[in-house]
């Protein structure tokens, strides 16, 4: 907040967007069609600047995906969704010894996945993203880490509505962890499922308009140091 002069309201907008997005999700724990920025700002303070509605709750849940090789995929489906790239990266344990305002480990993981997927310009080529959002500010942090916008720009895109489901770059159309819930180790599974549903046109009420072609999902872990990234493409 200090480095980029980000307003608390802009961070709260993420929570509002995701909790509203989750309304169409059958597994959602925290969907709320009527939540407002004021609700978030007025929720109880946990550890300032983090408040109750800035946080996703720990949830029970499981996710499963089935991968198969290109050779046999046509036995099962006519419209596969391809896993185009994966990347992972870990930073030092000593988190108190580094900058905390830009997640370099996310950008390194993203670069690995984009390289594998042949994505040269992520901002143009990626249609939507499911970054990890256990706290609302982490979505903004991770958008920047995923190289989807310049440093410090994510709050502005959010304020302008670009990251809404019908915006130019929908972020967490599933409702993310803030809306669906945070099933600790199954979060990347949850995000990968959403990529599959969106790319295969099976997301129902949550479907992003305009047939998205490429989606990216990301998870975060450990003590502010670990990121995994997955890119999927419509067949």
């Amino acid at each position: 907040m200090t480095v980029y002069d980000v307003k608390k309201e802009d961070i709260a907008r993420v929570s509002v967007k995701n909790k509203r997005n989750a309304v169409g999700h059958p597994c959602a724990q925290l969907a709320d069609p009527n939540i407002t920025v004021e609700d978030v700002l007025n929720s109880e303070i946990m550890a300032w600047p983090v408040q109750r509605l800035d946080i996703s709750p720990p949830s029970d849940g499981a996710a499963a995906l089935i991968y198969c090789s290109e050779d046999i995929v046509r036995q099962y489906t006519d419209d596969p969704v391809w896993v185009d790239g994966v990347g992972w990266n870990i930073d030092s344990t000593m988190w108190t010894n580094r900058d905390l305002y830009f997640p370099r480990y996310v950008s390194e993981a993203a670069k690995m996945a984009y390289k594998m997927a042949g994505i040269h310009n992520p901002r143009k080529e990626i249609d939507f993203a499911e970054p990890y959002d256990p706290f609302d500010y982490k979505e903004l942090h991770h958008m920047e880490g995923l190289l989807l916008c310049d440093k410090g720009q994510a709050p502005i895109l959010t304020r302008e509505g670009v990251t809404q489901r019908d915006g130019d770059l929908p972020i967490c159309p599933s409702g993310g962890l803030l809306g669906v819930g945070n099933p600790i180790a199954a979060t990347m599974g949850q995000k990968a499922c959403e990529l599959y549903w969106q790319l295969s046109g099976k997301a129902g009420k949550r479907q992003i308009p305009g047939d998205p072609m490429v989606g990216v999902g990301q998870a975060w872990g450990d003590i502010m140091q670990m990121a995994t990234v997955i890119c999927m493409r419509r067949g």
């Binding site: 303070i45 946990m46 550890a47 300032w48 905390l100």
Partner: peptide, 9 residues
């Protein structure tokens, strides 16, 4: 101070 938080828990 590099960064801080005010914890109510």
């Amino acid at each position: 101070i590099n960064t801080y938080s005010i914890s109510y828990l």
